[in-house]
Design a binder for these strands. Structure first.
Lengths: 343, 343
DNA sequence: ACCGCTTTCGTTAGCGGTAACATAGCCGCT
DNA sequence: AGCGGCTATGTTACCGCTAACGAAAGCGGT
């Protein structure tokens, strides 16, 4: 290691430093570092070596400003604690890893105002695209998305009016299909347990589809229970205890997600309630976690990784060229009966 | 809505557009938008209104380049699926929300080369600080961290040699304390179950501390079982079945994380194995998930949110001014005996 | 020797902001 | 009136990099 290389001040390195160290112009260094344009093999290696010994890290801020290109994709999701979204992220990364693009995550905590702020922050970095969960946004958010002039993919949900492209499943349909399966299995007195829904639009839509399908069968939700915050597994137990305490003759419990469903299942097993004979159970999401439980909870796969992959694919295809837009990908989740729904 | 505002081409807006729309210089607009310098109330409102109706979103790329300041903090973690890291993120966000700084997440999937690449990418955006999980990095990564000239906080683990600041717990000590508790509860034939550890350094250190403490008590690990990939809950069941099949007289099982521990617990309960009399169980992490299980698994809280908060605090305090550095925060996790370790 | 072509490099002019300094207007004070 | 000292705004010069163009060098063919 030459002492010269270390003798620098603490000032961050620039292209100029590398250019001086290797005796070529900044432009040539830039070309080498980006593998663009013709550079002779000799200078290429010389430059690369200089960059390496100096420990040069390019400044993408300057690069992005000059080239008007940013290889970032903003991904805006409600939460990381949900397990669902990390899986979506996995799908996104899987596809983007094959490209120049990189995902950057923003978390909204299910708050529209936070979503607006996060979106604003992210757009101010001029990403190449936006993947954002849900179809419900503030007016300001929608305006920003529309004005951004980049591909936008709204994910998870297809029941509504997208700004641009959309990838997801119909949660109304998911609710309906679950209800139909429950009814045709012979259950009649059905309870619903879920999050307080003012801001969880997808849970709300599933509930709407669910009640709608029940209504068609001449039934309605016999009792319901809502929660917010806390460990979902515990809440599932507590709510199940509460609803069965209040309405003991329920013969089915539909949970708005697998985690509380798992809590409910564990509760029932604890109490010696026969599942699915005495009480049937179903959740939503298709979490792999469920595979480890004593009985397999009926659920519906939300196609999380697929959604991520499709969304990323759309962004990647549109990045750069301004093609049509408005893609619409509707995935159809399959109900998995598991061991908690009579056949 | 004036038609003028819409008549623009699709070209993204710049300060100049706002400045023309409001009849002041770009500089004044910049001042208004950043709340910096004196601007009369009259022009301020005029500018803000113009910016709003145009739908102007500042270009942070240009801003950052000009001001040499970037309000981003790179957070580099192995995985989002682990539940542990989202909680760390929560702690980080909690603190950074009070500041100008914003976390940006990079995921390494426990691969050193990926860590190196992710780090390089993130540093090329010239963040104000780096929070990175673990103390083990490639030489190149360490060099980059050292050369970056920004505060670096290595988190989760304190058993090793940090580049700069460090916040975490001693996993060796965690392993030792768990072992001591197990031994003094009277268990003698102890099995270990965990991830394949070549890259999970913290699990390895816990294991080392564990065996070390057992050795002091004249014991050694009687059998062990390792896994990788897949749903941890299922793996926990499978491994437990395997290890108990092979070595039926084990009286304690130490799991390297709560998720496989939970799987093991469910397996034992299924099989009618008396916990903690016949077999004792312990995990690691203090996941809230455990609260919902039939019995509470013995575990040790990894202080995840606290680690995030402390790390963010250090970055926030050092951002800008170049103070000393080298902070060292060692948190001490408490063993929680739960219902799966005799008292 | 001259031409045209290719390969390899350098020069110039920004990208969209902001720091730092300059300037204009206004106030009160002597 | 003239001056210093505000406050509110404008000017200039970059930040570090890249697009676009330009130019030098090498080469074969006539």
């Amino acid at each position: 290691m030459t002492k010269d290389a270390i003798a620098n001040t603490n000032r961050p390195l620039t292209l100029r430093d590398v250019s001086e160290a290797s005796g070529v112009s900044e432009m040539t260094v830039s070309r080498v570092l980006r593998n663009r344009g013709d550079v002779s093999e000799a200078t290429r290696t010389r430059v690369l070596e200089a960059a390496k010994t100096l420990g040069y890290v390019p400044n993408k801020i300057a690069g992005a400003l000059a080239s008007q290109r940013v290889n970032l994709v903003a991904v805006i999701i409600p939460s990381l604690g949900n397990l669902v979204f990390p899986e979506v992220m996995t799908g996104i990364s899987e596809v983007l890893d094959e490209t120049e693009l990189q995902p950057v995550v923003g978390v909204t905590n299910y708050q529209p105002e936070r979503e607006e702020k996060v979106l604003y922050e992210m757009l101010s970095w001029r990403p190449s695209g936006v993947i954002i969960a849900g179809l419900e946004h503030t007016d300001a958010s929608r305006a920003m998305l529309r004005a951004a002039g980049i591909p936008i993919v709204e994910i998870m949900d297809t029941d509504g009016d997208p700004v641009d492209a959309v990838v997801g499943i119909s949660h109304r349909r998911a609710g309906r299909e679950t209800a139909n399966a429950i009814v045709s299995a012979g259950y009649r007195k059905i309870g619903f347990l879920g999050t307080k829904m003012p801001l969880d639009h997808r849970a709300r839509k599933r509930f709407e589809g669910f009640t709608e399908a029940l209504a068609k069968a001449g039934l309605e939700v016999a009792d319901q229970e809502f929660y917010e915050g806390g460990s979902a597994l515990v809440k599932g137990r507590e709510m199940t205890a509460a609803i069965l305490g209040r309405t003991p003759d329920l013969d089915f419990l539909y949970y708005s997600n697998d985690m509380i469903g798992a809590g409910g299942l564990l509760y029932c097993l604890d109490k010696g309630i026969e599942v699915p004979r005495q009480v049937g159970l179903a959740g939503f999401n298709g979490l792999r976690l469920l595979d480890g439980l004593p009985k397999k909870l009926a659920t519906m796969d939300a196609c999380r990784a697929d959604i991520g992959r499709e969304a990323a694919r759309i962004i990647a295809e549109r990045a750069g060229q301004d093609s049509a837009g408005g893609e619409r990908v509707v995935l159809t989740p399959q109900l998995q009966l598991g061991d908690t729904l009579k056949r």
